[in-house]
Write a protein that binds this DNA or RNA. Structure first.
Lengths: 220, 220
DNA sequence: ACATGTGAATGCGTTCACAGCA
DNA sequence: TGCTGTGAACGCATTCACATGT
C-alpha cells in the first residue's frame, strides 16, 4: 500500500478525516490532491517531527524490578532511545549486567551523564531517594526527567518532569468498572463515609460521555 | 487544616480556581460558602466517585520484572486495589513468593478469577502471550484489562482494555527536548528521508482507539 | 474525478464575574 | 466579609464545506 487517503487513516484511527488533514497540514503539505499521502514519506515526516529519528541516550537510575523491566523493554530502541547506562546505589549490583548492560554505581552518575551527553533521565528508585537523585541529575545537566517514583519532584525552571503513576490506569479501569456495575448493586467493601458537616442538597451530576478518561483536574 | 478553599487547591494543583469549583460542582455541592471545602468530607466524596472506596481484587499475569514491580508497587493497596493472585506460565515460579504472594500457574487462571470474583486483570507477559492470556481472562469473566504488553489486544464488546506503553512518556520528553535544542543544531543520528510519492490506494479496517497524550503539534 | 488544504461555522471546555449564602 | 456555585462570555479545537490542485 504505497498511499493512503485521510479518509482511510481517519477510519483506522477512529477520528474525523478533516481533523487528520488539518493536523497533518501543520507539519506541511505532504499529501497529493486527488491521490492521498505517500505512506513511507508521511511516516518519515511524522517520525522526524516527533523526534523519533534522533538518537536519545537515556540513563535509568534505580535498578530494582521496575528499572530492570525498563532496561529490558524492547520498545525503547525502536523509538530512538538508547539506554546509555544503568545506575544504582547498591554496590552489590555494580558491574552486574542487566539487559546486557553493566550496572554502575551512583558515584559515577555525573561522569556518565557528562561523558555520554545524556539529556534524559529515568528515575525508578524508591520514593525516598527520588528527589535526591533528581537533584543530582539536574546538576549534572539533565533537562528531562521521567519519574516512576511515587513522589512529586521539584525541579528548577527549564527542566521537564513527567510522572508515571502505574496505578492511574487501574483507577481508570475501576472507574468504568464501577459504572458497568450500575449505581445500585453496591454490596461491596465500602468504608463508612464521614458524617457530612455541610449537610445540604446534592445536585445530580450530568452524565459523562461513554468514551473518555477520568474527569480530570490536571496540573500544568 | 480542616478546610480548604478552591483558591488554595487550585494553586496547589496549578489550575484555575473556577475550573476546580465547577468540576467539584458536578459531584454535588460539597463546599460551604464563605468557608471552603471540608477536607475529610471532600476526600471521601471524590474517592467514592472515583471508585477508590471499593475493594478491587486484581490478578497480575506474567511475573517477570514488570509483573514483580507491579506486585511490589505500594500505590495499589492505597488506592483500593488488592492483588488477589500472581499468575505465570513458568512452572518453576509456581509457589515462589513475590511481594509476599505465591505465584500460581496459568492452569489455575480460571479458578482463581472465579473464586475471587476478580473483574480486573493486568497483563505483563511478553507480547507473544498477551492475546492468548487476554482471551482466557475474558472467557473467565474479566471485564477490564490493563495491558503492558506491546500488542494491541482484541476483545469482545463490553470489555475495557487500556494499554500502557512505557516509551510514550519518553517520547513526549524527547519531543520537548528536541524543541529546547532549537531547530538548528541538529547534527544527530538522522536517517535519510525517503523521496517522492507513487500512487494506488487500498482499504483499511476501522477501529476506535483511546489515545495517550502526546503533545499537539502547533503551527510554526 | 478525486482527495487535499483551509476559511468559516460549530461545539465545547475554560474562565470571568457576580449572585447567593454562611 | 468571604468563598462557593453558576450563568454568561470567551477562546480554542473540531468539524463542515468547498475552493484548489493533480
Amino acid at each position: 500500500m504505497p498511499t493512503v487517503s485521510s479518509e482511510e487513516l481517519a477510519a483506522a484511527a477512529g477520528v474525523n478525516s478533516a481533523k487528520l488533514r488539518k493536523d497533518f497540514s501543520y507539519l506541511g503539505s505532504y499529501g497529493t490532491r486527488g491521490v492521498g499521502y505517500d505512506v513511507e514519506y508521511l511516516v518519515y515526516q511524522i517520525s522526524r517531527e516527533l523526534g523519533l529519528t534522533q538518537d536519545w541516550p537515556v540513563v535509568i537510575v534505580g535498578i530494582g524490578n521496575l528499572g530492570a523491566a525498563l532496561a529490558n523493554y524492547g520498545g525503547f530502541a525502536s523509538r530512538g532511545f538508547r539506554v546509555a547506562a544503568l545506575i544504582d546505589a547498591d554496590p552489590g549490583l555494580s558491574g552486574k549486567p542487566v539487559a546486557g548492560i553493566p550496572v554502575q554505581h551512583t558515584d559515577e552518575l555525573e561522569a556518565i551523564i557528562s561523558d555520554n551527553g545524556v539529556s534524559i533521565g529515568v528515575i525508578a528508585t524508591p520514593a525516598g531517594a527520588a528527589q535526591q537523585v533528581c537533584d543530582r541529575l539536574v546538576a549534572a545537566g539533565i533537562t528531562s526527567i521521567l519519574n516512576f517514583a511515587p513522589t512529586v519532584l521539584s525541579v528548577p525552571e527549564g527542566v521537564d518532569v513527567r510522572k508515571v503513576d502505574l496505578s492511574i490506569e487501574l483507577q481508570i479501569l475501576a472507574f468504568h468498572e464501577q459504572r458497568k456495575a450500575g449505581e445500585e448493586p453496591q454490596g461491596e467493601t465500602e468504608t463508612a463515609p464521614p458524617a457530612a458537616p455541610p449537610a445540604v442538597a446534592v445536585t445530580k451530576r450530568p452524565e459523562a460521555g461513554p468514551d473518555g478518561d477520568l474527569p480530570a483536574v490536571m496540573p500544568a
